[in-house]
Design a protein around this nucleic acid. Structure first.
Lengths: 360, 360
DNA sequence: TTGTACGCGTTATCAC
DNA sequence: GTGATAACGCGTACAA
């Protein structure tokens, strides 16, 4: 026995397909109480489940939300091994499911036709993370579905954006180190791309340094990829070539983990010999040893809010909490420093002005 | 201007819809070279993208693979914050995308109609992780789509299974500790459910202990949830109530992290005072400090293989490597111990028979 | 309440 | 050998 269709239900209940459809869509005013019940019984006994493809075809909505994740150059796989993505997806999925939407997860091979996915599947909306070339966004606009951008600084009122104040975050982290007596502060980061989150954090870093009349030394900026491995590599370089650095700002917690690992291997203790502050507060950060001091953003909430925004755009009123419509185009989530165990006040009261250098 | 349809293309190219369809589906033998080119040009210029809903309707295949993740009781959100899931999904997604399939990600609220998802969306197949009540599997069988179960011990030849030998893994871990002189070995674990992976690991633990003529003490088994928090809680209990325990086997790396954390807080050093071995080797394990000794399973590969198996069931010949059809119903991936920094030989040569106890 | 045209793409049938 | 016609798959919603 194959899957029953609406037609089968209609036949079994001796009614028209229209009647069944009405019942399915809750248009009870179109159906008498008796037939309603009869149809419902048949649906149950036949185990009928409507076909979303057919529905999507006629209603032009699929109850499907796409979520697009960038690929790094290096990995063919999804970037999901970055816990940051896992957490945010977790938030998105939970919210969407509550409203009867499903989640289509897809990475994009760069240079590929990312957009076809959104069209082919008749997606009702999409959440896009990461940063892409300009044309990508131009293409997105042509498909006219609601789109929420996460962590994008694209200045285009067409899109809805959820993000944080990355510049401020970078400032916050760096200032935090400065306030604790550090003057030679390194920054370890992924690729600094124009208008990307990393660039903003970098800007914040520089602002804090300048504002405190410290010397900005470009050599202290270690730019490569947003990865643990980069953290490891940078840590070794700092250990061997920059002994004067007493604190580092890692623009992602994953990088911080790598840093601390290589410092440890080099016999440099965190935070006793060198302080480290991260960014993100992925859930592993509190589990790390020592627990990572970091700039916290509420990642899961970011996902939830992105989903809510999308739902309300689609007309599902997904906004549970606020609902006040300020400028919905852009939502900036708060940031805060979580003080844990990887930053220490330098010099411990005694001025280091004489030597000015040296972790040793 | 709205989205162009196949009909639009046909009109613009002055051909029938059939011709366009042929081109789309690579049935070039049905179309002359000239029209082929013309149609292709129109497709490009119109930016035509076929609608999968319509296609799904007629072909009864959606190029959509479902992936079902269980929810724990505690979390409303996806369990994605467990890196284990992230990694395996990463593997699955990469493989599927390569073959033009998309991934539908969904958690299941327990007791809910998980199955509707699979039917509604006309999924071509599904990958199911975790363990569910019996009825669930019965329901699955009624939908007649290929299904790959990950880490399930359901004994039903209807399903295809990918897993590891959990019993052996538990044995391996415990034996490893025993071989290093430990005799009082705790086991910290998530819920031990009948025929679940955890039960198997538990069985392995007991076998190793008995085989070595050690005393199996049920008090040494701390069962709760597969979580970091449980590790923390268990660690504190061990510290305060079971000083004689010198080594613990955590049935998941996440638990191990929690254990080590609470040990550290209690002033108990790992591995100097107590040894810890984990299970899984999630990517964080090598990053942890100290790096976690653990039973490694190749998580991402598990995902890749699950995807391959599914693809080949669907008829996409997803098996890149082997292809030899042994008993494809069940694939057991290898396990190995990764020696890192959290297990130490006990007693360091000197016999402890006198005291027999004490991490002191 | 029902009949039915419609949405979009596929494919079997048939014609040139 | 090419390619057009039309029925079909499933559910929706308007006209009757």
């Amino acid at each position: 026995m194959k899957r029953p269709t609406l037609k089968d239900v209609a036949k079994a209940a001796s009614v028209s397909t229209a009647a069944v459809s009405y019942v399915l869509n809750g248009k009870h005013e179109k159906v008498s109480g008796e037939t309603l019940e009869r149809i419902n019984n048949v649906i149950k006994s036949l185990n009928y489940v409507p076909d979303y493809s057919a529905r999507s075809l006629v209603k032009n909505q699929s109850r499907l939300i796409g979520i697009v994740i960038p690929q790094t150059e290096k990995h063919a796989q999804l970037i999901l091994e970055n816990p940051w993505y896992s957490e945010i997806i977790s938030g998105i999925e939970g919210k969407l499911r509550k409203y009867g939407y499903h989640l289509l997860l897809s990475g994009v091979n760069q240079g590929e036709s990312y957009l076809d996915l959104l069209i082919q599947r008749n997606l009702d909306g999409a959440i896009i993370m990461g940063i892409y070339p300009e044309e990508f966004y131009e293409g997105l606009k042509k498909i006219k579905i609601p789109i929420v951008l996460i962590d994008s600084y694209i200045n285009d009122s067409y899109f809805y954006r959820i993000g944080i104040d990355d510049e401020y975050g970078g400032y916050l982290a760096t200032k935090y180190l400065i306030d604790r007596g550090h003057t030679n502060i390194g920054m370890i980061t992924g690729a600094i791309r124009r208008e990307g989150v990393v660039e903003k954090r970098f800007l914040g870093y520089k602002r804090a340094i300048r504002e405190s009349n410290l010397f900005y030394n470009p050599d202290y900026v270690f730019e490569d990829s947003m990865s643990y491995d980069h953290g490891v590599a940078a840590g070794h370089r700092i250990a061997s070539a920059f002994p004067e650095i007493t604190a580092v700002f890692a623009t992602a917690d994953m990088i911080a983990f790598g840093l601390i690992k290589s410092f440890t291997d080099e016999g440099i203790r965190t935070p006793d010999d060198i302080s480290v502050i991260g960014f993100d507060d992925v859930f592993m950060s509190r589990m790390f040893l020592p627990p990572l001091t970091t700039v916290r953003q509420d990642i899961k909430k970011k996902g939830v809010i992105a989903a809510e925004r999308l739902l309300s755009l689609i007309g599902e009123a997904g906004d549970d909490d606020n609902g006040q419509s300020e400028d919905l185009r852009e939502t900036i989530l708060p940031l805060e420093i979580v003080e844990r165990g990887t930053v220490i006040r330098r010099g411990n009261g005694q001025s280091l002005t004489e030597t000015e250098h040296g972790r040793g």
